[in-house]
């Protein structure tokens, strides 16, 4: 009997292991499926809501009984939509262009040029890298409103509206996004990974620093720039806080227009959801096209630590 039990134990162990493995796998699949549903459901629900006619919205059903495009029609007829797309893309691309150009130059110098004071300057910048915009948005507003010689201001920054006036506020929205210590840091790290010899040999040939930068190193920076551009575009498309604070909701970007549906006295959920999808779907398509850059860009940020 003793021998028998030993025998079964010996034979049973692989079975037990297999069962355990199968159990683990089943658990994994269930958990992943559950989260998948949680991830997708809000999107599904906004599609369903946007396709429901007004009289169905408050009645619960998992799909529209008589689907209609009326909500989308209303959303597309919103006179602010075209203006908002134009504003959002314009402000984002302008800020992004300046930001990346400025960061490339600075990142290159901090990585490759051994100039006096450079290290100290970089340290000062780095110290501010972790500060959230939340701690300085009020004084940034003051700086922009009191900027000398702009928007009716005199040399001391008095008398006008600076960059927060009606005509100049788009510049006020762009300017703070023109510099990002994180981007400088990110590009500097990237420049450091490129081999030194490339520039050295060119220097012997008597090339100027700017030529070395533009002709030798810049082409190699394409993947890093693509990553930054994609993330900057994403955050620009989604940005709400700064355009709202600066323009008090007057400067129409997509998120501000979306929010207006909810600050209305009686929000029309169907149209609001349709508008929400109109601004969300382009971002999802953008992600699917560039997903390789998204994934590698996210991790590049953490590896630097």
């Amino acid at each position: 009997m003793g021998a028998q039990s030993v025998g079964t134990a010996g034979a049973g162990r692989p079975y037990a292991l297999k069962a355990k493995k199968r159990g683990l796998k089943a658990f994994k699949i269930t958990a992943a499926a559950l989260w998948l549903v949680i991830c997708i459901f809000p999107f599904y629900w906004s599609i369903v809501t946007s396709l429901k006619p007004l009289n169905e919205i408050m009645i619960f059903s998992l799909w529209p009984k008589s689907p209609t495009w009326l909500n989308f029609k209303d959303a597309f007829l919103n006179k602010d939509l075209v203006r908002a797309v134009f504003n959002t893309v314009g402000v984002t691309v302008a800020g992004m262009g300046v930001n990346i150009a400025v960061s490339l130059l600075a990142g290159y110098a901090f990585a490759r040029i051994r100039f006096r004071g450079g290290k100290a300057m970089f340290k000062i910048m780095q110290a501010s890298m972790m500060l959230p915009f939340a701690v300085m948005f009020i004084p940034t507003y003051i700086v922009l409103a009191r900027f000398p010689l702009v928007g009716g201001n005199n040399i001391l920054g008095q008398g006008g509206y600076g960059f927060v006036g009606q005509e100049t506020q788009f510049l006020g929205i762009i300017l703070p996004s023109c510099v990002s210590v994180y981007n400088i840091f990110f590009l500097r790290q990237f420049f450091l990974t490129l081999p030194n010899e490339l520039g050295e040999s060119a220097k012997i040939d008597g090339a100027r620093e700017l030529r070395i930068f533009a002709l030798i190193y810049l082409p190699l920076m394409r993947p890093a720039v693509a990553t930054l551009a994609i993330f900057t575009f994403q955050s620009g498309w989604n940005n709400y806080f700064w355009p709202y604070i600066l323009g008090q909701g007057q400067y129409k970007v997509l998120t501000i227009v979306l929010r207006q549906y909810y600050t209305a006295i009686a929000p029309d959920h169907g149209v609001a959801m349709a508008f929400n999808l109109i601004i969300t779907i382009p971002m999802i398509l953008f992600f699917i096209v560039f997903q390789r850059y998204f994934m590698s860009g996210l991790t590049a940020g953490s590896v630097k630590e």
Partner: peptide, 28 residues
Amino acid sequence: KTDFTGWCFVLPAVLLFFCFILLPIVIS
């Protein structure tokens, strides 16, 4: 000469950094 080149490269970034990060903190 190197110093000059280096500061020229970082100048735009430093100016923007001064106006929209450092100055706001000081004003705060």
